[in-house]
Nucleic acid binder design. Structure first.
Length: 424
DNA sequence: TCTGGGGTCCTAGGACCC
DNA sequence: TCTGGGGTCCTAGGACCC
């Protein structure tokens, strides 16, 4: 059996941990740059405001059931509370796979439904008492079924649900498009095959499922049948790419400001790269231009206004200064005078382990591919003294007008001594 | 008239997740 | 005026090898 533990309205619950006055009120947490709603409390959902609604459309509106509360996103806080929950799970389960900041799969030590139920309730109570976050927990034979059990558990007063041996009735009540692995596109094709519920998907012939959604969808169907196809992904596989991009607080129109933003995101992504002990072979630099009607596609269907270029580093590296030198060489071709930029970003690819085996060039003397000692020192200093005590001048020492807006930021109450809560 | 059989690597695009 | 930021996997097709 596998369990799924999932924090309820996670970001909102985190904000409530450090500010109990938010309890019972309609609260939403905003995306970076105070853009749109990415987490909502139950009270907020009850007002009928959808996920992804832009903040500017809501901030001046009045709602009957009390004033809306908005929080800027505070990832330092959410990340810390998430780590605390995972550490409890590691104590209590045979194995834990953290799936996202607010979800983890666990392999429980119990087997019988009664034992699982009691175990789940105890786990839930412990997380609530130790961290302050309410969770939903679901148990089932596969990850996909555990997702379903979790959704049911969340709606129960106990917060826990163990999927019965024969879940046909439950699956029949769940629309196919709510199944994990079925997104926005597949339901159209599924309807054409008269596959409407999770049970329909489970019971459909393999060849039909394959023709609609390939082996990926077939795996989902097998999971619904109780045959595990999605394994424990632990083992910490290295990422294939590392990205850092941000929308700007104000539109950027100068070359210097755009290059400065890219230098910042390069430095951030490089820190992430070094944390994984990886070197990047090259990168993609891109920027997004503001154009009329670009948001007409809605939350995720934006017009494609990205311009960018690709550069390869002289050899795979994790040294920010080497990267910045290479990136600058192509930058003139990217910048368009007169354009208004709203976002920029960088993506590293061709990642390999520092100090590991690599494919050398037959005609070029092989140099060792080691982590940069300079940047190991800089990372250590920043870890000790604060995230950006030591940085490249290219990142800018002026106003940084492109910095994102976070007007309603809560304290980093669990990770920063200066921002501890004061309890009267 | 009629023309093999087995691979690899890369890229773009589509689908999905949180 | 104003709308996030990360990722993954799979497939098809092209170019190439013998």
């Amino acid at each position: 059996m596998v369990g799924l533990v999932d924090g309820n309205n996670f970001f909102v619950s985190c904000e409530r941990v450090v500010n109990p006055k938010l309890n019972g009120r309609p609260v939403a947490v905003l995306s970076n740059n105070d853009g749109c709603c990415v987490a909502r409390s139950n009270e907020f959902k009850a007002l009928g405001i959808k996920m992804g609604t832009p903040y500017y459309q809501l901030k001046d509106r009045e709602f009957p059931k009390g004033d809306l509360v908005f929080c800027s996103s505070n990832y330092e806080l959410y990340g810390d509370l998430s780590r605390r929950i995972v550490s409890i799970l590691r104590d209590e389960a045979l194995d834990v796979e953290q799936y996202s900041i607010d979800e983890a799969f666990i392999w429980p030590p119990k087997r019988s439904p009664d034992d699982l139920f009691a175990y789940g309730r105890r786990l839930r109570a412990k997380i609530l008492q130790w961290v302050g976050i309410p969770c939903g927990i679901g148990f089932a034979p596969t990850k996909t079924l555990a997702k379903i059990a979790n959704h049911i558990g969340k709606k129960r007063p106990e917060g826990v649900f163990v999927l019965p041996d024969d879940p046909a009735e439950i699956l029949a009540s769940i629309p196919a498009d709510e199944v994990w692995g079925v997104g926005r596109r597949l339901p159209v094709k599924l309807r054409a095959e008269r596959i409407l519920s999770a049970k329909d998907l489970r019971d459909a012939p393999d060849d039909v499922i394959r023709s609609v959604g390939g082996v990926t969808l077939l795996r989902t169907a097998m999971e619904l049948r109780g045959k595990p196809c999605l394994m424990n992904e632990n083992g910490g596989a290295d990422p294939d790419s590392i990205t850092c991009s941000r929308s700007f607080g104000e539109q950027v129109t100068t070359k210097d400001a755009l290059m400065e933003s890219i230098a910042n995101f390069t430095a951030q992504a490089a820190t992430k790269l070094r944390r994984h002990g990886l070197l990047a072979s090259g990168c993609n630099v891109y920027a997004q231009v503001v154009t009329a009607g670009m948001f007409e596609g809605g939350f995720s269907g934006w017009a494609d206004n990205f311009h960018g270029y690709t550069v390869m580093f002289p050899q795979p590296t994790d040294a920010t200064n080497v990267m910045l030198r290479t990136i600058r060489e192509g930058f003139d071709a990217l910048f368009m005078p007169g354009a208004r930029y709203r976002k920029s970003g960088i993506m590293f690819f061709g990642l390999e382990k520092a100090g590991g085996a690599f494919q050398a060039d037959l005609f070029v003397p092989a140099e060792k591919r080691e982590a940069s000692p300079l940047y190991r020192t800089i990372d250590a200093l920043n870890a000790k003294l604060g995230r950006t005590k030591v940085f490249s001048a290219a990142e800018g020492i002026g106003k940084r007008s492109w910095k994102m807006r976070r007007a309603m930021l809560s304290p980093r109450a669990t990770t920063n001594w200066a921002e501890l809560l004061v309890v009267k």
